[in-house]
């Protein structure tokens, strides 16, 4: 086609450029609008996080002080403190941590190192992932029946701790499995090449290498356990315990339980809401510390091969 012909045909476009331009503009505008909406919904959850913490902090100001941490529960809001619930939560951790780490790591070692790939292994794995999805109240019912009534542990620290251990065990197992999987094969091969047996290899090579990952997972599981309320309520932890827990068989109350009852009682006296807020700050602070430790371990000790 010569230049002249092209000039002549200039008015007869094959494409309707006007419509095309309009359509392009629309598509680009739509893209920008959508991007804005998407940013907003991402920021929405961050905003909520900010509002939540700010709001709770505001309600706790004036109530959260050393006296509040040191004194025991009381029906008078001005006198009430959370010394007992803090100790209860610490006791709970003292049971949940060893039980879940020992059982969780043992299960993970079996699944990753010993079990032959087959139906039994995939059955256990499916079972674990299903357990992780069971609502925590159901674990409460299990604890109430088995630990509380069958083994006659009542609503003691031991019963609460074992119930919580079962609840967070899947988290520890999955995290430990991931950590064990990440141990490179050449380390194991080197150990076998030196004549080490399987157990020696696991004990001296695999476990130490996987330890940071296991610890990170365990701490996260523990932080889930101390924030969990429903199983303890179902176990029948009494509302007001004035005695300080002194052993694994004594009755106890924990921080989330106290938040629950104070929130419910806020209808009676609005000051209880402030007490609940102050307790939430203490709980969130503990969780924050634990999560920071977990992240620190992960960043500091985890080697990449």
């Amino acid at each position: 086609m010569s230049y002249d012909v092209m000039q002549q045909n200039k008015d007869k476009h094959f494409l309707n450029t006007e419509a095309l331009k309009r359509r392009m503009k629309l598509r680009i505008i739509l893209d920008k609008v959508a991007k804005g909406i998407f940013i907003l919904s991402t920021l929405f959850s961050l905003l909520i996080l900010g509002v939540l913490i700010y709001r709770v902090w505001n309600q706790s100001v004036g109530w959260l002080n050393l006296r509040f941490l040191k004194s025991n529960l009381s029906i008078f809001p001005e006198k009430a403190g959370i010394h007992g619930p803090i100790l209860g939560t610490l006791w709970l951790m003292a049971i949940v941590a060893p039980v879940t780490v020992i059982l969780g790591v043992a299960t993970a070692i079996y699944l990753e190192e010993y079990a032959t790939k087959g139906k039994f292994q995939s059955f256990i794995k499916t079972n674990i992932s299903n357990l992780a999805g069971v609502p925590s109240v159901i674990f409460g019912l299990l604890g109430l029946t088995v630990f509380g009534r069958l083994l006659k542990l009542g609503s003691s620290i031991l019963a609460g701790g074992l119930t919580m251990s079962l609840l967070v065990l899947p988290i520890v197992i999955v995290a430990s499995q991931e950590a064990l999987k990440a141990v490179p094969g050449f380390l194991k091969d080197a150990s076998y090449a030196l004549g080490a047996t399987k157990w020696t290899t696991i004990k001296t090579v695999i476990l130490p290498t996987a330890l940071p990952g296991i610890m990170t997972g365990s701490i996260l599981a523990l932080s889930r356990a101390i924030g969990e309320t429903a199983p303890l309520v179902v176990l029948g932890i009494p509302t007001l315990i004035l005695r300080i827990p002194d052993g694994i068989m004594s009755d106890f109350t924990a921080l989330p339980i106290q938040i629950y009852y104070w929130t419910l009682d806020a209808v009676l006296r609005p000051e209880y809401a402030n007490l609940a807020a102050a307790t939430i700050i203490v709980l969130l602070f503990m969780l924050f510390i634990m999560n920071s430790i977990a992240i620190l371990i992960r960043n500091k000790y985890q080697k990449r091969y």
């Binding site: 991402t42 959850s45 961050l46 909520i48 996080l49 509002v51 939540l52 709001r55 709770v56 309600q59 932080s223 889930r224 924030g227 969990e228 309320t229 429903a230 989330p256 938040i259 629950y260 929130t263 806020a266 809401a273 609940a276 807020a277 939430i280 709980l283 969130l284 969780l287 999560n291």
Partner: peptide, 19 residues
Amino acid sequence: MELLAGIPTIVYGFFAYSF
């Protein structure tokens, strides 16, 4: 965002009721 997932549900309960 995942911090939001780590907050105990009891805290959300308090937030729902009082805010």
